[in-house]
Every structure is written in structure tokens, then in C-alpha cells.
Amino acid sequence: MSYLEYRFLVRPLQPASDMLMAELGELGFESFVETDNGVLAYVQTDQSPHETDIDSLFVAQHPDFEISWSFTKVEQQNWNAEWEKNFHPISVGNRCRIRAPFHPHENVEFDIVIEPKMSFGTGHHETTRMMLQLLLDENMAGKKVLDMGSGTGVLAILTEMMGADNIMAVDIDVWCFENARENVERNQCKKIQVVQGDAHVLGNEKYDLIIANINRNILLKDIPIYASCLKKAGDLFLSGFYLNDLDMISAKCGEFNLKLEKKIVENDWVAVKYVH
């Protein structure tokens, strides 16, 4: 069995990369690796789509995105080497390390093993990395946590490792839902419930901390729901948008008495903490 590696150059990276991976998954692509300038996507040679199928994708035709691509054949004996070459462990400070199953264990406080498949959230993207930084600065002991748009489940997994007692991880995409469940089990987490859906599945539950690393438009739509689900002294961590969008996000949060307390910026992406 052999694979084809498709190399996609994507501008801007987000949300175009997420949309691209979602659509490619529907075309039979099995695995993805986020890169500094796009996405590597892998599909079995006998399952490869026609080039017109790729060019006709919604994200490829969208006027706000610029996407180009090429492909090469990856022989079966080189498959693992290719995957390993493009998926490097990520360290967040000196306390947290995110690695794939084939990477060796290192002696860090939080060693997280993630196999992303078709899900977002390996720590390679600025938004995930900054959200991890925000979490590492918090005391999670006994907290009830909601992770919206959980992707691989990496943020939810870290909160359990840090002492959170009750965690719900929610993602609308079925492949993210399934992948998060696998990663929760892979990291031997016992306090995370993984749910497929959007903000409407939350009901009347109240949380000490809500995490949402999604895109700007979804955040603006769902901030009222997040606010209603926060306990009185709860915190809201948001990312997935650019620094230029921060005033808009803060204005919406302000409508619900949520005040900006902290922000991290990396390559024009921002992650923020709001408090009641």
C-alpha cells in the first residue's frame, strides 16, 4: 500500500486550514499535519481524488483564501518516517510537552500524547500553544471545565492533568469527537466527557472555566451562551482570532460583564482571559 502526500500552501492559515482539512476528510484523506504555511494531507494512492475535486472545494474557491497544492508519492516503507519528520514534539514552557505516540517520553510535569488524525490541536498552531500557556498559569484543582471546539482534546486533557475534576469537551465535527475520545483514553484521563455538538448541547450546566479556541464569528455568536454557563466567579479563555479582532470580542464580552484580564499575542494571533 502506498500513499500520496499533498502539500497545501494556505493564506491566511486560519480558518482556511481547518476548513480545508474538514473538506479533504470528506474526499478520503486520512491524516493531516499542520505546517508553518499550510497543511500536509495524506491519502491512499488508490483513493486519491481527481484534481478537479480539490479545485472545486468550497475553501479553494473562496475569494478570501489563497490555496495552492502539489503532491508526491510516499512509499509504504517511508510512511512512518514521513509522519515523524513532519510532526515534532511541542514544549510549552518547561512544564508541558505534547508529542505523538512514536516520540519518546521525557520527564516533564505534563506529558501529553496526541495522535491528531484529522483534528485541530497539536500545539503547533499559535492559538493552541497560547491557550496551553494560559491554562498553565491557572490553579485547576477541583474545577469544572468546558472545552468548546475541543479538536484533539489536548486542552481538556491538560486541565485534567492539572487537577480539574469535571471536564466536558465539545466539538461539532464527528472526526474530532472520535479523535478526542481516543486521545482521552490514550492519556488515561477519567474525568473528561467528550460530546459531539455545538453550544446548544450545554443546557443549564455551570462551569468554573470555559475554554473556546474557535473562529471569530462562532465566538461572537456563542459568547452569550458561554456567559450564561459561567459560574459567578468563572473565567472565559478565548482564542482562534487575530489581534485586530480583539476589540470586537471584548465588546461582546463586555455586554455580559466579562472583563479582559490577560492576553497573549503571537504572530498576530491572540489568546485572552476574561473574568466576571
Score class of each variant (00 low, 15 high):
Phe241Arg: 02
Ile264Val: 10
Val92Ser: 08
Trp83Cys: 04
Lys232Arg: 08
Leu202Gln: 13
Val33Arg: 00
Arg99Met: 04
Gly197Trp: 10
Met21Ile: 15
Ile167Tyr: 06
Met19His: 09
Asp55Tyr: 05
Met19Val: 13
Phe256Met: 08
Ile157Leu: 11
Glu115Thr: 12
Leu260Gln: 07
Met130Thr: 11
Gln133Glu: 15
Glu182Ile: 09
Gly203Ala: 09
Pro49Phe: 12
Val10Ile: 15
Lys191Val: 02
Gln76Glu: 15
Arg7Gly: 05
Ser17Thr: 15
Gly197Thr: 07
Arg97Gly: 05
Asn217Thr: 13
Glu182Ser: 12
Ser250Glu: 08
Ala81Arg: 08
Gln61Pro: 04
Phe177Gly: 01
Ala81Asn: 15
Lys143Asn: 04
Asp137Phe: 01
Met148Leu: 06
Lys206Met: 11
Leu40Trp: 14
Phe65Ser: 03
Ile114Gln: 05
Lys221Gly: 01
Asn204Arg: 14
Leu135Cys: 12
Lys144Trp: 03
Glu82Asn: 14
Val154Asn: 02
Leu209Arg: 11
Ala41Ser: 15
Leu136Ser: 07
His105Leu: 05
Ser68Gln: 14
His103Met: 11
Thr45Gly: 05
Ile114Arg: 11
Lys206Asn: 02
Val195His: 00
Ser48Phe: 02
Ile112Val: 15
Leu238Ser: 03
Leu243Gly: 00
Ser68Asp: 15
Ser228Cys: 00
Asn139Val: 00
Leu27Trp: 10
Thr52Tyr: 10
Glu138Pro: 00
Asn166Lys: 13
Ala141Glu: 05
Gly240Cys: 01
Gln76Thr: 11
Val265Asp: 05
Lys259Leu: 12
Ala227Trp: 04
Cys176Met: 14
Glu126Trp: 04
Ala141Asn: 01
Leu13Phe: 06
Tyr226His: 07
Met168Trp: 10
Glu82Lys: 11
Glu23Cys: 10
Val201Ala: 11
Asn139Ser: 07
Gly254Pro: 02
Val145Phe: 08
